[in-house]
Amino acid sequence: MRNVRAIALKELKSFYVSALGYVVLGCWLLFTGMVFVLMLGDREPTADMEPIFRNCTILLVIVLPLLTMRLLAGERAGDQGIGTIELLLTSPLSEWELVLGKFFATVFYLLGLVLSSLIYTVTLKILGKPDIGPIIGGYVGFMLFSSYILALGILMSALTNSQVVAAVTTIVASLALWLCNWLPETLGKWAGWLKWTSMLSHHEDFWRGVVTFHDCLWFVSFIFFFLFAAKQVIASSKWR
Protein backbone atom coordinates (compact mmCIF):
# COMPACT_ATOMS: atom_id res chain seq x y z
CA MET A 1 0.00 0.00 0.00
CA ARG A 2 2.92 2.36 0.62
CA ASN A 3 3.87 1.89 -3.00
CA VAL A 4 0.34 2.61 -4.20
CA ARG A 5 0.38 5.83 -2.24
CA ALA A 6 3.79 6.86 -3.57
CA ILE A 7 2.74 6.25 -7.17
CA ALA A 8 -0.65 7.90 -6.75
CA LEU A 9 0.90 11.02 -5.22
CA LYS A 10 3.53 11.25 -7.92
CA GLU A 11 1.01 10.94 -10.74
CA LEU A 12 -1.44 13.31 -9.12
CA LYS A 13 1.31 15.87 -8.84
CA SER A 14 2.37 15.43 -12.44
CA PHE A 15 -1.18 16.14 -13.65
CA TYR A 16 -0.70 19.63 -12.32
CA VAL A 17 2.93 20.01 -13.32
CA SER A 18 2.06 19.20 -16.93
CA ALA A 19 -0.91 21.63 -17.12
CA LEU A 20 -3.07 18.75 -18.30
CA GLY A 21 -4.76 18.73 -14.91
CA TYR A 22 -5.69 22.38 -15.26
CA VAL A 23 -6.89 21.97 -18.83
CA VAL A 24 -9.25 19.14 -17.92
CA LEU A 25 -10.47 21.02 -14.86
CA GLY A 26 -11.00 24.10 -17.01
CA CYS A 27 -12.99 22.16 -19.61
CA TRP A 28 -15.10 20.65 -16.89
CA LEU A 29 -15.84 24.02 -15.26
CA LEU A 30 -16.49 25.71 -18.59
CA PHE A 31 -19.02 23.14 -19.77
CA THR A 32 -20.76 22.53 -16.47
CA GLY A 33 -20.89 26.30 -15.95
CA MET A 34 -22.48 26.87 -19.34
CA VAL A 35 -25.00 24.11 -18.80
CA PHE A 36 -25.77 25.52 -15.39
CA VAL A 37 -26.41 29.01 -16.77
CA LEU A 38 -28.60 27.62 -19.56
CA MET A 39 -30.46 25.60 -16.96
CA LEU A 40 -31.14 28.64 -14.80
CA GLY A 41 -32.46 30.52 -17.82
CA ASP A 42 -34.89 27.75 -18.67
CA ARG A 43 -38.56 28.64 -18.78
CA GLU A 44 -39.22 26.21 -15.99
CA PRO A 45 -35.98 26.12 -14.05
CA THR A 46 -35.61 22.98 -12.00
CA ALA A 47 -33.76 22.88 -8.74
CA ASP A 48 -31.71 19.82 -9.50
CA MET A 49 -28.44 19.04 -11.19
CA GLU A 50 -29.63 16.43 -13.61
CA PRO A 51 -28.95 18.57 -16.71
CA ILE A 52 -25.37 19.02 -15.60
CA PHE A 53 -24.76 15.34 -15.01
CA ARG A 54 -26.62 14.32 -18.16
CA ASN A 55 -24.94 16.75 -20.54
CA CYS A 56 -21.46 16.61 -19.17
CA THR A 57 -21.15 12.83 -19.20
CA ILE A 58 -20.19 12.93 -22.85
CA LEU A 59 -17.48 15.43 -21.95
CA LEU A 60 -16.05 12.91 -19.49
CA VAL A 61 -15.83 10.31 -22.24
CA ILE A 62 -13.68 12.67 -24.25
CA VAL A 63 -11.43 14.31 -21.65
CA LEU A 64 -10.80 11.54 -19.11
CA PRO A 65 -8.89 9.38 -21.63
CA LEU A 66 -6.48 12.30 -21.91
CA LEU A 67 -5.62 11.79 -18.26
CA THR A 68 -5.04 8.07 -18.57
CA MET A 69 -3.35 7.80 -21.96
CA ARG A 70 0.05 8.65 -20.53
CA LEU A 71 -0.09 6.56 -17.41
CA LEU A 72 1.31 3.27 -18.69
CA ALA A 73 2.02 3.91 -22.38
CA GLY A 74 4.19 6.84 -21.26
CA GLU A 75 6.22 4.63 -18.95
CA ARG A 76 7.04 2.28 -21.81
CA ALA A 77 7.94 4.92 -24.33
CA GLY A 78 8.80 8.03 -22.38
CA ASP A 79 9.34 11.46 -23.82
CA GLN A 80 12.46 10.28 -25.57
CA GLY A 81 11.39 6.79 -26.41
CA ILE A 82 12.95 5.38 -23.28
CA GLY A 83 11.22 3.14 -20.83
CA THR A 84 10.85 4.25 -17.24
CA ILE A 85 8.85 1.05 -16.88
CA GLU A 86 12.20 -0.72 -16.70
CA LEU A 87 12.90 0.94 -13.37
CA LEU A 88 9.37 0.42 -12.07
CA LEU A 89 9.37 -3.28 -12.88
CA THR A 90 12.81 -3.79 -11.38
CA SER A 91 11.73 -2.13 -8.14
CA PRO A 92 10.21 -4.29 -5.41
CA LEU A 93 6.73 -3.36 -6.50
CA SER A 94 3.91 -5.57 -7.70
CA GLU A 95 2.04 -5.00 -10.94
CA TRP A 96 -1.14 -4.54 -8.91
CA GLU A 97 0.44 -1.76 -6.91
CA LEU A 98 1.54 -0.08 -10.09
CA VAL A 99 -1.90 -0.22 -11.71
CA LEU A 100 -3.77 0.72 -8.54
CA GLY A 101 -1.42 3.61 -7.87
CA LYS A 102 -2.14 5.01 -11.31
CA PHE A 103 -5.87 4.41 -10.91
CA PHE A 104 -6.11 6.08 -7.53
CA ALA A 105 -4.21 9.09 -8.80
CA THR A 106 -6.94 9.66 -11.38
CA VAL A 107 -9.72 8.96 -8.87
CA PHE A 108 -8.28 11.56 -6.53
CA TYR A 109 -8.12 13.91 -9.45
CA LEU A 110 -11.85 13.32 -9.96
CA LEU A 111 -12.51 14.42 -6.41
CA GLY A 112 -11.19 17.79 -7.50
CA LEU A 113 -13.83 17.93 -10.22
CA VAL A 114 -16.51 16.97 -7.72
CA LEU A 115 -15.37 19.60 -5.25
CA SER A 116 -15.28 22.31 -7.89
CA SER A 117 -18.78 21.49 -9.06
CA LEU A 118 -20.17 21.73 -5.54
CA ILE A 119 -20.40 25.40 -6.39
CA TYR A 120 -23.55 24.57 -8.39
CA THR A 121 -25.04 22.61 -5.53
CA VAL A 122 -24.44 25.49 -3.17
CA THR A 123 -25.92 28.00 -5.63
CA LEU A 124 -29.00 25.84 -6.05
CA LYS A 125 -29.30 25.55 -2.30
CA ILE A 126 -29.25 29.33 -2.00
CA LEU A 127 -31.65 29.95 -4.90
CA GLY A 128 -34.17 27.25 -4.23
CA LYS A 129 -35.01 24.05 -2.53
CA PRO A 130 -33.16 21.31 -4.39
CA ASP A 131 -33.96 17.66 -3.76
CA ILE A 132 -30.72 16.47 -2.28
CA GLY A 133 -31.26 12.75 -3.09
CA PRO A 134 -30.79 13.00 -6.87
CA ILE A 135 -27.78 15.24 -6.36
CA ILE A 136 -26.03 12.72 -4.15
CA GLY A 137 -27.07 9.96 -6.55
CA GLY A 138 -25.74 12.04 -9.39
CA TYR A 139 -22.36 12.41 -7.70
CA VAL A 140 -22.14 8.73 -6.90
CA GLY A 141 -22.99 7.99 -10.52
CA PHE A 142 -20.44 10.53 -11.65
CA MET A 143 -17.68 8.88 -9.64
CA LEU A 144 -18.58 5.37 -10.81
CA PHE A 145 -18.99 6.36 -14.43
CA SER A 146 -15.76 8.35 -14.48
CA SER A 147 -13.84 5.58 -12.72
CA TYR A 148 -15.13 3.20 -15.36
CA ILE A 149 -13.76 5.37 -18.17
CA LEU A 150 -10.48 5.82 -16.30
CA ALA A 151 -10.06 2.09 -15.71
CA LEU A 152 -10.78 1.43 -19.37
CA GLY A 153 -8.26 4.14 -20.27
CA ILE A 154 -5.61 2.55 -18.06
CA LEU A 155 -6.19 -0.80 -19.75
CA MET A 156 -5.78 0.77 -23.20
CA SER A 157 -2.68 2.57 -21.98
CA ALA A 158 -1.25 -0.76 -20.84
CA LEU A 159 -1.88 -2.32 -24.24
CA THR A 160 0.05 0.13 -26.38
CA ASN A 161 3.25 2.16 -26.37
CA SER A 162 1.53 5.07 -28.05
CA GLN A 163 -0.31 7.59 -25.95
CA VAL A 164 -2.37 8.76 -28.91
CA VAL A 165 -3.49 5.22 -29.67
CA ALA A 166 -4.38 4.75 -26.02
CA ALA A 167 -6.54 7.89 -25.97
CA VAL A 168 -8.26 7.21 -29.26
CA THR A 169 -9.09 3.59 -28.50
CA THR A 170 -10.47 4.56 -25.10
CA ILE A 171 -12.71 7.23 -26.58
CA VAL A 172 -13.91 4.99 -29.40
CA ALA A 173 -14.56 2.04 -27.10
CA SER A 174 -16.45 4.26 -24.66
CA LEU A 175 -18.60 5.78 -27.38
CA ALA A 176 -19.34 2.36 -28.84
CA LEU A 177 -20.37 1.05 -25.43
CA TRP A 178 -22.43 4.18 -25.00
CA LEU A 179 -24.33 3.60 -28.24
CA CYS A 180 -25.03 -0.01 -27.29
CA ASN A 181 -27.67 1.48 -25.04
CA TRP A 182 -29.99 2.14 -27.98
CA LEU A 183 -29.08 -0.69 -30.32
CA PRO A 184 -31.70 -3.11 -28.97
CA GLU A 185 -34.41 -0.65 -29.94
CA THR A 186 -33.64 -1.12 -33.62
CA LEU A 187 -32.10 -4.58 -33.61
CA GLY A 188 -34.91 -6.18 -31.69
CA LYS A 189 -35.29 -8.19 -28.54
CA TRP A 190 -32.46 -10.67 -29.15
CA ALA A 191 -29.98 -7.81 -28.77
CA GLY A 192 -31.22 -6.93 -25.31
CA TRP A 193 -27.95 -7.96 -23.73
CA LEU A 194 -26.25 -5.13 -25.61
CA LYS A 195 -28.11 -2.68 -23.46
CA TRP A 196 -26.76 -4.41 -20.40
CA THR A 197 -23.20 -3.98 -21.61
CA SER A 198 -23.68 -0.23 -22.05
CA MET A 199 -22.56 1.85 -19.09
CA LEU A 200 -25.23 4.41 -19.94
CA SER A 201 -28.08 2.08 -19.06
CA HIS A 202 -26.57 1.66 -15.59
CA HIS A 203 -25.82 5.31 -15.21
CA GLU A 204 -29.19 6.97 -15.87
CA ASP A 205 -30.85 5.79 -12.69
CA PHE A 206 -28.30 7.63 -10.58
CA TRP A 207 -29.43 10.98 -11.98
CA ARG A 208 -32.92 10.28 -10.70
CA GLY A 209 -31.52 9.57 -7.27
CA VAL A 210 -31.97 5.84 -7.66
CA VAL A 211 -28.81 4.16 -6.45
CA THR A 212 -29.24 0.41 -6.85
CA PHE A 213 -26.90 -2.27 -5.65
CA HIS A 214 -27.05 -3.87 -9.07
CA ASP A 215 -25.83 -0.77 -10.89
CA CYS A 216 -23.07 -0.14 -8.37
CA LEU A 217 -21.95 -3.74 -8.61
CA TRP A 218 -22.01 -3.52 -12.40
CA PHE A 219 -19.65 -0.54 -12.39
CA VAL A 220 -17.37 -1.90 -9.69
CA SER A 221 -17.09 -5.25 -11.46
CA PHE A 222 -16.12 -3.67 -14.76
CA ILE A 223 -13.66 -1.30 -13.10
CA PHE A 224 -12.09 -4.28 -11.39
CA PHE A 225 -12.04 -6.25 -14.62
CA PHE A 226 -10.32 -3.45 -16.58
CA LEU A 227 -7.71 -2.93 -13.88
CA PHE A 228 -7.12 -6.64 -13.56
CA ALA A 229 -6.66 -6.93 -17.32
CA ALA A 230 -4.23 -3.99 -17.25
CA LYS A 231 -2.29 -5.68 -14.47
CA GLN A 232 -2.13 -8.91 -16.49
CA VAL A 233 -0.90 -7.06 -19.55
CA ILE A 234 1.92 -5.47 -17.54
CA ALA A 235 2.78 -8.75 -15.86
CA SER A 236 2.77 -10.64 -19.16
CA SER A 237 6.11 -9.10 -20.14
CA LYS A 238 7.62 -11.25 -17.39
CA TRP A 239 5.90 -14.47 -18.34
CA ARG A 240 8.14 -17.19 -19.68
Binding site: S14, V17, G78, I82, T84, E86, T90, S91, S94
Partner: peptide
Protein backbone atom coordinates in the same frame (compact mmCIF):
# COMPACT_ATOMS: atom_id res chain seq x y z
CA UNK B 1 10.59 -9.48 -5.34
CA UNK B 2 13.29 -10.47 -2.85
CA UNK B 3 15.85 -10.06 -5.60
CA UNK B 4 14.53 -6.65 -6.61
CA UNK B 5 14.67 -5.46 -3.00
CA UNK B 6 18.44 -6.01 -3.04
CA UNK B 7 19.12 -4.49 -6.44
CA UNK B 8 20.15 -1.13 -7.70
CA UNK B 9 19.91 -0.84 -11.46
CA UNK B 10 21.03 1.73 -13.97
CA UNK B 11 19.51 0.85 -17.36
CA UNK B 12 21.57 1.82 -20.37
CA UNK B 13 19.13 4.43 -21.68
CA UNK B 14 18.82 6.07 -18.23
CA UNK B 15 15.05 6.41 -18.01
CA UNK B 16 13.97 9.42 -15.96
CA UNK B 17 10.83 11.47 -15.46
CA UNK B 18 11.72 14.70 -17.16
CA UNK B 19 9.05 16.71 -15.35
CA UNK B 20 10.34 15.91 -11.87
Amino acid sequence: REVRRRLGYLPENVPLYLDM
